[in-house]
Design a protein around this nucleic acid. Sequence first.
DNA 1: TGTACATCAGTGAACGCGCGTTCACTGATGTAC
DNA 2: TGTACATCAGTGAACGCGCGTTCACTGATGTAC
Lengths: 206, 206
Amino acid sequence: MRYAKEHKQETHDSIVKKASVKLRERGAHGIGVADLMKEAGLTHGGFYAHFASREALVVEAFVYAMERSTAAWRKKTEPMPPEERFAAIVESYLSSAHRDDPGRGCALPALAAEIGRESVKTRRAFAGKLEEMVEMLAEQIPDASAEAAREQAMAALATMVGTLVLARAGGSGKLSDDILAAGRDVLLEKPAPVKARVKKPAAKGA
Amino acid sequence: MRYAKEHKQETHDSIVKKASVKLRERGAHGIGVADLMKEAGLTHGGFYAHFASREALVVEAFVYAMERSTAAWRKKTEPMPPEERFAAIVESYLSSAHRDDPGRGCALPALAAEIGRESVKTRRAFAGKLEEMVEMLAEQIPDASAEAAREQAMAALATMVGTLVLARAGGSGKLSDDILAAGRDVLLEKPAPVKARVKKPAAKGA
DNA sequence: TGTACATCAGTGAACGCGCGTTCACTGATGTAC
DNA sequence: TGTACATCAGTGAACGCGCGTTCACTGATGTAC
C-alpha cells in the first residue's frame, strides 16, 4: 500500500455520504457525476475508480441513507420508555423541520418513487433496507403480536412517507401544514375535532 | 381557419393524454420530447407549436391525470350508498392492479416527489389539484364535520399514496403484497390479528 | 363547379450543451536498501 | 538516516451521445372568385 490503509475507503465513504444528501435534495436524476464529486472535494475523473457506474452510486447512497435513518431512530428512542417511542418517531418524522430539509431526512419520500422504476436488482437492495426499517418501527409498537406490529409498522410508515411527499409537493403554506397535522393526528390517534370516530385515547393525550 | 376548427386543440389534448400515461410510467425525467411526440403519432419538431417548454407539458399532463382521477372516482362512487364509497375508493386504489399499472393510475405516487422539487408556480398548480382531490375524498366520508372529513381525507390520501409508493418500490413479491394489505387494513379499520387496538367495527366488517 | 391562392399544423435537419464515461498522465506517498 | 524507486488515488482533457430547442420548409386544407 502506498497510501494509508483506509485512505481509499474513506474517500469512497465520503463520496457516498455527500451524494446521499444531494440525491435526497434533488432526486435520483437531479445531479450529475461531476457535481457529486465536487461535493466531496474531488474531480469527476476519479469517479470510476470508486463506482462501476453512476447508478451504482445512487444505490449505495440510498442504502446508506436508509441505514442511517434506521440506526438514528433506534438510538434516539432507546432511552425512552417503550410506550413513548412510536409517538416520538412520528412526531419527528412529520415535523416541518423534516419536511423542509429533505437532504438530511428519510430517503423514502425523496427517492422511493424513482427506485420503483429501477432494475430488479436495485429494487431488491431497496426491499432489504425497507424490511429493516419496518422491523425497527415494529419493535417500537408495544401491545401487539409480532405480526400485528409488523402490519401496523408498514401502514404507519406508508402514512408517514405519503404525508411527507404530499406536504413537500404542496408547498409550505397552509395546505402543507394541514397535511402534516392530519398525518400526525391519525398516527397518534388524536381524534379529529367534532364527531370524530370513537378511539382509544392516545398515550400522551389525557 | 385552414383546418377544422378544433384540429389543433385535439392534437394538443392527444399529446397531453399520451404523455400523462408515459410520464406516470417512467417519471417526470424518464422520457424525452421526441418519444413523447412519437407516442401521439407526431414528430418532435411540432412540439413547440403546442407547448412553451417540456416542463409546461409535464405540468399539463400531471394536472390532466389528477383531474381524470378525481372525476373517475366521483363518477364511480356516485351510484353507491354513501357509507360504501370511501371503502370502494380505498380498495381500488390499494389493489395490485393499480400497483402494477402506474400509467393509468393516480399521478401522486408516480410524480408527487418530483413535483416537490419544481418551481413555486408548478407547485401551486399541483396544490390546487390536490385540494380538489382531497375535497372529493372528504365528501365520501360520512359521519364527520367538514373539518374532520377534510383531515381524515388528507390522512387517508397520504396513506394510500405512501402505500403505493412503497409497494411499487418493494417489487411485486410478498413484501409488496403485505404493504398493500396493511394499508387497506388500517384505512378500512379492519383490526390487525390478535391484540389489536380497540376500534369501532368497520362498516362492512361485522 | 373549378382553379388559384393563403394559411398554418406538422416535418425533419441542425444547433449547442451537458452528461456519463474513458484514458493517459501526475505527483504524493510508502518501501527497499 | 538518506536516496531511488514503485504504486496508485486522483486529475483533467477528450469522447460520443442524446436531449431540448430552433427554424426554414412542406403540403393538406379551406377560402375567394
